[in-house]
Amino acid sequence: MITLFMPDALHALTQLRATDLVDRFVDASAVLPPDWLAMCQQVQDALDDAQRLHVMEEFLEPRWQQCRPSQASLQHRYSDWVAHLTQRAAVSAPGRSLRQVERRIKQWAGLPLRELRIMGRSEEAFYASTTQAAQTADKPDWAQIAADMGYSDQSHLIRTTRRITGFTPEALGKGIQQHESFWAYRLWM
């Protein structure tokens, strides 16, 4: 069982900084507070997935209600989350220069603003390709999608997607549809 948190939510819930966890595997007992470790043990000891989910919900719900932002973003896409994060960083503390905002974002999210925007644009391109494929029942027109999403050309889109995921957009789409190992990408669909 895996639980995913957006970096700012993880920080709000645990005070862990995403920058300390990027590109690393870390033992939970080394970083999580004691009450989180107790919850992890309860999840492990649960008899079935329904009970595991119940334990996690009972643990997380009151904590999230206590620390959640007063005005949550209504958007559900990555680029909208980045825009919301940028807005929060700009008004959250003294020092509102662009560099200070970028430092806050990197501290909260674990990645620089530029990289987050690149990932958001890639996600938008992927959504556009799945929407186009569903509407036309053909292969996506990658050149048109690249132009619509602000890439310099189709190869720019392909290089960026390959850098982020390790796959071309075409291979990523096929993998999501056909292979169980691509389950993490399905979470965003």
Rank of each mutant, 00 (worst) to 15 (best):
I2S: 07
F5A: 01
P7H: 05
L10H: 07
L10P: 02
A12S: 10
L13P: 01
L21D: 04
D23Q: 15
P33H: 09
D35E: 15
D35P: 02
A38M: 13
C40V: 14
C40D: 11
Q41R: 14
Q42R: 13
A46C: 03
L47H: 12
Q51W: 05
M56L: 14
E58N: 12
E61G: 00
R63M: 03
R63D: 00
Q71E: 14
S73D: 10
R77L: 12
A83N: 14
H84A: 15
A90V: 03
A90G: 12
G95S: 09
G95P: 10
S97W: 14
L98C: 05
L98Q: 15
L98T: 13
R99S: 10
R99C: 01
E102M: 11
E102T: 09
R104I: 05
Q107L: 09
L111Y: 11
L113I: 07
I118Y: 02
E123G: 02
A128H: 10
A128D: 11
Q132V: 02
A134D: 14
D138H: 15
D141N: 12
G150V: 03
Y151D: 02
L157R: 07
I158E: 04
R159D: 02
T161E: 04
R162K: 15
R163D: 09
L172V: 02
L172I: 04
L172H: 06
G173D: 07
Q178V: 01
A184C: 06
